[in-house]
Design a protein around this nucleic acid. Structure first.
Lengths: 239, 239
DNA sequence: GCAAAAAGTTAGGACATACTAACTTATTTC
DNA sequence: GAAATAAGTTAGTATGTCCTAACTTTTTGC
């Protein structure tokens, strides 16, 4: 009976709990591309008290999922990174599937995926991906990790950093805030859209954008959440 | 801050945890049609120690989900019944969806649904149901509760109880054991199949069945897991 | 380079869920 | 109807995750 309960004691193969998966995801996205994640950042992203993070982080280090030095933040180990990417893949495949196959509006896929990612098996996720044609990005443009754990880690410019006069194609928008997503949708600032920065008012003022014949103005906070692939600047700076 | 955490304190509207949903489902299926559920039965169905059930059952009673009298089993309250049926609906819609939309084999939908049922929102479940045409039963023939909490509670005869010479249409098979489902699939004892009991060997011996031109023999344990709607007996007893 | 501020940690506790061991109540059997 | 058996409960404990309060370490700003 105790044997039955200890089943697969292969080290590092025990299924991770939902909170653990959330920590790993958070740490991965914070420290994306090598950086370390600070306790407070993790706490903020997960809406937890910093003290809780200290505690959890120590346990995760014991499990070999991350490297932890007291007072100096954490970094995922290879095994932690793999686990994080597995969860991220689930999340993004599920988002894409909900949007594609079930007609979910793009502002609500995140919340639903946030719960399903912990319950869906790898097989389910793979079937979903296959059914909608192995998408490479989720509905917000975030790249979907492959099964073997590789992701596109290209770093894009945000609309807030694009020079006046420059153009870019929207590749990705922040996915967590439904209201923001609805607003971006209204403005039709969507992945794939081509946008030009017409002008930028001083003192963090509004940024005026052109897209096709449309012209609009958004604040820098919003602009920071829109990532673009810059296009060869056809016009130089003007404005 | 404490206000933010106590949010929706409407009594009986707090989201239920996965274990609680599992208890309610188990209690519902055990006491289906009014009966009370015994502690040991609940424990067995959930693979828990009876002591754990005693503890949980008291908490569920405090929450108004069931009526509990020490040493005398439990019965769901109306609110408990509603919660159980909500979970059962999720489970069965998910099973049906996995089979229909994602090509899941019928012996594996149960396990996957067992986890997803706790993570899927009502909206997701409703979209799934709509997408596959509002099915009335899951892949094993179990009736899907409607959104407003009604279910078909017809009690069917099992193949083990069908008289020799009698015929019936398979309406439902037990859903939990993948191996059994695969075996039934091989024999093509599937919901919708018409089957006649040809003979029954004494002392719990094998039951011989006819279905179309096919003839086969199964044990009474397996037969007990196949529910049928008896057909008017066209031939009287013979054999 | 030291004081104030920020960041992070430990201590101690809560809650949900499970367990085993020991006990109590109910049911069965003769 | 009393003893044996079955069913169910309580007591005490463990684990995972979270919290607040108090403390320590690091960083920042002059």
């Amino acid at each position: 009976m105790s044997a039955a309960r200890e089943e697969s004691r292969v080290p590092g193969r025990e299924p991770l709990t939902a909170p653990v998966e959330d920590y790993l995801k958070a740490i991965y996205t914070i420290g994306k591309g090598s950086g370390a994640a600070a306790t407070n950042e993790i706490a903020q992203r997960l809406a937890l008290a910093p003290a809780s993070v200290s505690g959890m982080v120590r346990r995760l280090a014991d499990q070999g999922l991350l490297a932890y030095e007291r007072y100096h933040g954490v970094k995922l180990t290879e095994s932690g990174r793999r686990a994080a990417l597995r969860t991220l893949r689930r999340h993004r495949v599920i988002e894409a599937y909900l949007a594609e196959a079930l007609g979910y509006p793009w502002d609500r896929v995140h919340e639903e995926a946030e719960r399903l990612e912990h319950a869906a098996s790898d097989e389910l996720v793979d079937r979903m991906a296959a059914t909608i044609g192995e998408p490479e990005v989720d509905p917000h443009g975030a790249p979907i990790p492959t099964k073997d754990g590789s992701v596109d880690e290209t770093v894009y410019t945000s609309l807030a950093d694009l020079a006046v006069g420059a153009s870019g194609v929207v590749v990705r928008v922040a996915d967590e805030d439904p209201e923001m997503l609805r607003y971006l949708g209204e403005l039709s600032i969507l992945p794939g859209k081509r946008i030009t920065v017409k002008s930028r008012a001083p003192y963090d003022g509004p940024i005026t954008l052109g897209s096709g014949r449309q012209e609009m103005s958004i604040g820098p906070a919003l602009a920071a959440h829109v990532l673009v692939a810059p296009l060869a600047d056809r016009a130089g700076k003007r404005g």
